[in-house]
Design a protein around this nucleic acid. Sequence first.
DNA 1: AATAAAACCATAGTTATTCTATGGTTTTTA
DNA 2: TAAAAACCATAGAATAACTATGGTTTTATT
Lengths: 222, 222
Amino acid sequence: MDLVRILAVDDHEMTLVGYKYILEATEFKDFRVSLDTATNFDQAVQKIEYSAKSSRYDIILLDIQLSAVMDGPAKTGEDIGIFARKTVPESKIVYMSSFSDNYRINSILKSVNPDGYMVKSDIDEKSLQAMVMTIMDSPPYYTQKALSAIRKKMANDFVLDDNDKKILYNLSIGTRTIDMVGNVDLSLAGIENRKRHLKVLFGVEKQNDQALINEARNKGFL
Amino acid sequence: MDLVRILAVDDHEMTLVGYKYILEATEFKDFRVSLDTATNFDQAVQKIEYSAKSSRYDIILLDIQLSAVMDGPAKTGEDIGIFARKTVPESKIVYMSSFSDNYRINSILKSVNPDGYMVKSDIDEKSLQAMVMTIMDSPPYYTQKALSAIRKKMANDFVLDDNDKKILYNLSIGTRTIDMVGNVDLSLAGIENRKRHLKVLFGVEKQNDQALINEARNKGFL
DNA sequence: AATAAAACCATAGTTATTCTATGGTTTTTA
DNA sequence: TAAAAACCATAGAATAACTATGGTTTTATT
């Protein structure tokens, strides 16, 4: 009987207990599961680093949001994923995130290209087991909410560059146009032009910013 | 007990018999299935048109490849999908295709944005049933091979415009550079430049065309 | 092996796009 | 109602991509 080794990273201990309880008790067809855990960024990195020298994890489960570490730049599960891809490319990576917004999912899909993505509200005993089986057998595995985010994105035939995305994101969190000059690397006039252009692109010409944000969300860009 | 009405379009009668035999015999939890069929483009369009005036199909299953009709432009399942989206937007559309290549899947995903995509070699009794349930409950539904095509595409962070795609496609079918001038709407020098640019983009600089094609296929563009 | 064709590469000039800078007008906010 | 921000338009600068052209290298053909 093979042993599938899993590392689960989440800052909520109870979540980890849940994963462990379910997965280690499950009798899979060809294997059983042993689940290791980490509750913060440094611990996760350390365990992954160590695994590279001893025996690799088969699957690494990553939460995106990790409680902030004291000072220093925020280290997220996304960073762990990028690190793991470099360090132990053979290990499969699956995100377990409460983010179901397209912006986040798309970002992760590009930066890490994980083997799976589960939106937490979609997770239950059955889907957890299905995920492990699918990942070991024929990835990828996505839960329903992740899939619809992906579908929306695939259906679009236009692409936004970095500046466009930044402008949209800033709009969505209420940044004033004049304050975007600081973080978008365009002149004020440039930003204004882009906004106008974006409204045309999303078919909300002559409407207000809220309409633009709604459409962008609709089409999977936010 | 609700009735779910399905229209299946395929030029292989036997395939339709298979769908019908399985789906109408299945006892779903909340409904049973009645399956109507069409074996060519015109018949499909006509049935869809008629359904718009009477009662809509809940699901339309479409094969992409339909045996060529005499003269006139080739009418494919893709065209039926586009037509159905316009005519009966409430009907869910699922492709049942033997194409598992990314080029085709991506094209369909953009032009029709179907609620499901099944690669035929992935289809069996269980997946057929799962598809119907998922589509009625919470679309989309994709089979494994379709999913991995989608995953590849999502992981790329660059985009090819129409000319790039045409050049890649022509390369893959062995068109000589000098002959591409006819169908790519660029000068010869322009095409050469694009090819060079594409090789840089795909990280196969200074290598031959085959390397480019392989990488493009690898990354989900062919 | 010689010759022709195609592919490859570089350059100059043209064209098209997008940016900035600027200033005026309209709308929103205090 | 006064000030701030957003909106809009235009001229000029900067950039990127295209064409045309011609030379060099590679590949195919006889």
